Amino acid sequence: MTRFDARDAGQEPTNFLYPFIDAREDDAQSLLADLAASAEAKAAESLALRRSTLESNAESLGRAAAEMARRFAAGGRLFTFGNGGSCTDSTTLAMLFARPPIGKPLPAWSLTADQAIVTALGNDVGFELVFARQLIARARAGDIAIAMSTSGNSPNLLAALAEARRRGMYTVGFAGYNGGAFADNPDVDVCFIVGSQSVHRIQEAQALLGYQLWVAVHERADATGVTMS
């Protein structure tokens, strides 16, 4: 049996993340120092991006929060959706609104939470319509749709946003890079863009944006005396 040598992992596609691991360093302290420096650099990069993202999206956050607070007060409901890592982020965001650590719970659901529905629709009508068809069945005018994506180009998210627009919903998109197809899209009322080329950093910043949106919705309701149902 051929013995596996970790130093032969240089061909792995993820090698670019920690190139110094494959540098055949014999000094353990040097390797640990490199690992620590890499972690610190990534943390600093993430912090800087999150700060700049909040600044660049401040006006959009205020606008979206005001409209969402108004719609919640009128009986509107929130539906979130995304793919992959953005699926988990959209589910976390829905849970934050529906079961907050403090403040008033608001009606919010993730369209990825029910595996039976997602797989049935994917099998019966196609994955591109797994979210749009749920909105057809559940959503109504006055509701809110939030689509989360790193690229802003996912066909099933775009189909759902188009359906949301047809149904009179308020539509919010989260995207990375330059916003992709979410940006300047007539089906998207507000698009939060995280200007980064790293999927990891994009999703970290989007998580903070989602939290800030939740905070801003409650602050806007309190400031205007709006009672959210």
Rank of each mutant, 00 (worst) to 15 (best):
R3L: 12
R3C: 02
F4L: 12
R7T: 06
R7S: 10
E12S: 14
E12M: 11
L17P: 01
F20N: 01
D22G: 15
A23T: 12
D27T: 01
Q29R: 14
D34C: 14
L35T: 07
A36M: 09
A37R: 15
S38F: 02
A41T: 02
A44W: 02
E45P: 00
A48H: 09
R50M: 15
S52A: 15
L54H: 12
E55K: 10
S56C: 06
E59V: 12
G62K: 09
G62L: 08
G62S: 10
A64P: 05
R70A: 14
F72H: 10
G76N: 05
R77K: 15
F81E: 11
N83K: 07
N83F: 06
G84M: 03
G85S: 11
S86C: 03
S86F: 04
C87W: 13
T88A: 15
T91E: 15
M95K: 03
A98Q: 08
I102Y: 13
L106G: 10
L111N: 11
A113D: 15
A113L: 13
A113I: 11
A113N: 05
D114Q: 07
Q115A: 15
A116R: 03
A116D: 01
I117Y: 00
A120S: 13
L121K: 01
G122F: 06
G126P: 05
G126F: 02
A132G: 02
R133Q: 14
Q134A: 05
I136C: 02
R138H: 06
A139D: 07
I146A: 01
A147R: 00
A147N: 00
T150R: 04
N153G: 03
S154M: 01
P155L: 07
A159T: 14
E163Q: 14
A164H: 07
R165W: 01
R165E: 09
R166L: 03
R167G: 02
G168P: 12
G168Y: 08
M169Y: 06
T171Q: 05
G173S: 09
F174K: 13
G176L: 13
A181W: 01
F182D: 05
A183G: 00
D187I: 05
C191A: 15
F192P: 12
V194L: 11
Q197E: 12
V199D: 13
Q203R: 13
Q203P: 12
L209P: 09
H218N: 14
H218Y: 02
A221R: 06
A223E: 11
